[in-house]
Amino acid sequence: MKSVYKVVLAVLAVAGFFFAVQPAVAHHSGAEFMDQVKEITGTIKEFQFKNPHTWIQVVVENPKGEKEEWSVEWGAPNSLARQGYRPSTFPAGAKVVMRIHPMRSGAPAGGFVAAKFPDGKTVGKWE
């Protein structure tokens, strides 16, 4: 039984590795994003779970107290679905802290790194 458990673990590890190496932006290069990580805090407006890439729209209050909509690009819905994510992963109205690779242009957008909800639940590589 123990060896079966080990085999299952090994299979899951291998499968996990190959899912993990899926490029986040297979459809285009991703050169528009910086390597550095920025944190934004806001409210989910919409999770566009569509091809060729998913987008999370987050409403953030900027330093002037104005509401600003950020566009956060994530992986293809298909590869995310194979990892267990669904349109319900980012429900509209939920508060969220999000880590992103910001755009080089300074536009309110970025590439998704991780997210944390108020209840401590995380998505992506938070730690």
Partner: peptide, 9 residues
């Protein structure tokens, strides 16, 4: 995979 479904790039 409907590539043109929401191509923002």
């Amino acid at each position: 995979y409907g590539c043109a479904e929401n191509n923002r790039n």
